[in-house]
Amino acid sequence: MTGYLVRRLPSALGVLLLASFAIFLILRAVQGDPAETLAGSDPSPESVGAIRHELGLDRPLLTQYGAWIADVVRGDFGRSYIIGGSVNELLAQRLGNTVELTVGALVFTIALGLLFGVLGVTVKNRFGQTLLSAVNSVSLIVPAYVSGFLLVFVFAITWPVLPPGGHVSILSDPQIGFQYLLMPALVLALPPSAILARYVKDGLQQALGEDYARTAKSLGIPPRRILWRHALPNALPPVLTVLGMQVGVLLGGAVIIEAVFAWPGLGMLAEQAVTRRDYPVIQAVLLFLVVVYVVVQLLTDLAYALIDPRVRLG
């Protein structure tokens, strides 16, 4: 297992380095200058130039990138151009809220993915299969922000049983916090849960067609026990890889969903930073999301290799 980890680490570090360089260059390619924002309305070229020099924006791009990535390696994401505070502190203030939303969405993703995947195998009638297929397709096709607005319209405006937005920590008040978490976490979980359900269904169908499943059926073992005790554990390893990939989808979707539901997490922080051209904040949020995605992928690969020795021995 150690050898497998050593083989995987260089590629993970390479992805992080390329992603950091791409983030840095893309932000500089976008129109807009933070110095002009800081200089106020109708600034003189001299004042804009002075601010650019103070922020180091007049240096060559490679020099700026080198200085930034060197600070990042030391754990320092710099200072916000607009707010003026430490970017590390801004991330720490919002990170817990985004983690809460992502974990909630991940729970919904696993629960809904397993539920509809198992139903896809156990439901035999045509109407049930058509209904499951329709729900799965709608979950994949409808954008998250559209389903978010629909849920707000139904459950916060038309039938006001849930708050339309905002945040109360589920740790400080579980009952109220769950009410605030329910809609954004569910909206965020719908697309990845539909993907997960398809893989669970395909894995179960393949597992139920294996010799051990047919032998168990011939011995009179109840179909439900064959499904849960034998087929499902053998269908989970490929599903684990897909689930690891969906964590990145959840993190990326959180940026949009937080704006829809006024959830004060990293997504809203990034949105505010984009409108103000606050480079250090945007870079820190995007790089943090990439780091989390790469780490989750690495852990998923390690878990898969632990389950299936052929992966690590290959």
Score class of each variant (00 low, 15 high):
94 R>E: 06
16 L>D: 05
153 F>S: 13
173 D>H: 09
52 R>H: 05
142 V>P: 11
266 L>S: 07
240 L>P: 05
155 F>C: 09
182 L>P: 00
182 L>A: 12
306 L>H: 14
222 P>W: 06
195 I>G: 15
245 M>A: 14
257 I>M: 11
253 G>P: 05
50 A>L: 13
26 I>H: 08
16 L>N: 01
21 F>V: 10
238 P>E: 08
249 V>Q: 13
160 P>N: 07
245 M>Q: 15
102 T>N: 10
133 S>T: 13
122 T>G: 06
228 W>Q: 05
266 L>H: 08
12 A>T: 00
204 L>M: 03
79 R>W: 12
296 V>N: 03
111 A>K: 01
2 T>W: 12
86 S>C: 12
72 V>G: 09
111 A>M: 06
175 Q>F: 14
148 G>F: 11
264 P>T: 09
98 T>Q: 01
229 R>L: 11
38 L>Y: 07
307 I>R: 04
291 V>K: 01
224 R>F: 10
39 A>W: 02
187 V>F: 12
66 G>F: 05
167 H>A: 04
4 Y>F: 11
210 E>N: 01
301 D>G: 05
159 W>V: 12
97 N>Y: 03
110 I>W: 00
217 K>T: 14
169 S>T: 03
138 V>I: 15
8 R>A: 00
215 T>L: 08
173 D>L: 00
172 S>Q: 13
225 R>N: 10
271 E>V: 15
124 K>N: 14
196 L>V: 15
240 L>I: 15
225 R>V: 12
11 S>T: 02
166 G>D: 08
55 L>R: 07
166 G>P: 07
190 L>V: 10
306 L>D: 08
294 V>R: 00
239 V>S: 05
93 Q>C: 06
144 A>H: 14
33 D>I: 05
77 F>P: 09
253 G>A: 09
167 H>T: 02
15 V>S: 07
282 I>K: 02
84 G>S: 10
103 V>K: 07
40 G>E: 03
240 L>Q: 02
181 L>Y: 04
175 Q>D: 11
35 A>E: 07
21 F>W: 12
77 F>E: 10
37 T>L: 15
8 R>F: 00
298 L>I: 02
300 T>L: 12
249 V>S: 15
37 T>R: 12
267 G>Q: 09
79 R>E: 15
229 R>P: 06
53 H>Y: 10
88 N>F: 06
242 V>G: 09
162 L>A: 10
282 I>W: 03
103 V>Q: 01
251 L>N: 04
157 I>W: 13
255 V>N: 02
267 G>W: 09
36 E>A: 15
257 I>S: 04
300 T>D: 07
252 G>P: 01
195 I>F: 14
177 G>Y: 02
92 A>M: 08
243 L>I: 11
264 P>F: 07
151 L>P: 04
249 V>F: 14
78 G>K: 03
254 A>G: 05
140 L>F: 13
256 I>V: 14
191 P>A: 10
186 L>I: 09
104 G>Q: 06
154 V>Q: 03
240 L>W: 04
47 S>R: 15
76 D>I: 10
